[in-house]
């Protein structure tokens, strides 16, 4: 057995049980293959040679658990990731949202906020931002703190600018942020309609009604049972004919709600509630 994988699936289950009892976070319905990989990476980073070692550290140190939360929930995100998706939003979704006096939006699993900021920029360009109320939620308080600051690393801004242009953006992207040293801060005005708050898709429930819910590349880390729970939650949280958008390789095809939505744009995974 190679040394990169000291923790096995059975031991993983024990660790997850312990975390549920100690901290109230339930990872038991996360996909095992992916979770096991990240837990093993975390074990290596914390010099935990065995599952017992890791369990001991997690049980006895809340700061280590916070680190664990940061590491094992995936927080990789970009501005205008998948330009084709944003292009479809511009063309097919925003014109519909424009008909509502108040546009209510939920970004579920928003991580450090990049997709939320992208949406804010699009709403701004469509003249809809002032009418929008955007709730952005994540399981991880550290992510939310970063997201609230509006600060993102400057390193990938060139790529983000290309993404923005490919999505059909016509403005000077640099007008939307101020750069300082190696970071950029998204203009406060663009973020003014966003409320960031903690929400755990595993255990929390409906908290409002929305015309648009975005949950991209979040449920890929959930097993089918948990995906079905979350999709039902989204269905119940959407107003009639509301939109749900997923990541490019996610699908409702294998879910319990597949007959309750139309896929209005196949390749960019924009779904709309049928009733």
């Amino acid at each position: 057995m190679d040394e990169n994988n000291s923790i096995h699936i059975k031991e993983l289950d024990e660790i997850l049980q312990m975390l549920l009892h100690r901290y109230g976070y339930d990872f038991s319905n996360y996909t095992k293959a992916s979770l096991l990989r990240r837990v093993n990476r975390f074990a290596k980073e914390t010099d935990s040679a065995t599952a017992y070692d890791l369990k001991y550290k997690l049980l006895n140190s809340e700061p280590i658990f916070q680190l664990f939360l940061q590491e094992v929930t995936v927080n990789v995100t970009e501005l205008f990731r998948d330009p084709a998706y944003y292009k479809s939003l511009r063309e097919k979704v925003l014109p519909v949202l424009a008909s509502y006096p108040i546009i209510k939006i939920w970004h579920a699993g928003c991580s450090t906020g990049e997709e939320v900021f992208s949406m804010c920029i699009m709403l701004h360009e469509a003249g809809l931002l002032k009418r929008a109320r955007i709730y952005a939620t994540d399981i991880n308080p550290a992510n939310l703190e970063k997201a609230r600051s509006g600060i993102i690393p400057l390193a990938h801004m060139k790529e983000y600018t290309t993404n923005y242009l490919k999505s059909g953006g016509k403005n000077d992207f640099a007008d939307y942020y101020s750069a300082r040293y190696d970071h950029a801060i998204i203009n406060e005005e663009l973020r003014s309609q966003v409320i960031f708050s903690q929400h755990n898709l595993v255990s929390d429930n409906v908290f409002n009604e929305f015309q648009f819910i975005s949950c991209r590349n979040v449920m890929i880390y959930f097993d089918k049972q948990l995906q079905d729970r979350v999709l039902q939650l989204f269905y119940d949280s959407l107003s009639s004919l509301g939109f749900l958008t997923l990541g490019l390789k996610e699908t409702l095809l294998f879910s319990v709600v597949k007959d309750k939505f139309n896929n209005i744009h196949k390749t960019t995974k924009i779904y709309r509630r049928k009733d």
């Binding site: 996909t31 095992k32 293959a33 992916s34 990989r37 990240r38 995936v74 990789v76 590349n217 890929i220 880390y221 097993d223 089918k224 990541g247 490019l248 390789k249 996610e250």
Partner: peptide, 21 residues
């Protein structure tokens, strides 16, 4: 395997995707 995702398989023989680093 699709671009830009890791491709994994789960017990029960389904694919799952991962967008980590």
């Amino acid at each position: 395997a699709a671009q830009n995702y890791h491709l994994l398989v789960e017990q029960g023989n389904t694919f799952s995707l991962d967008y980590s680093e």
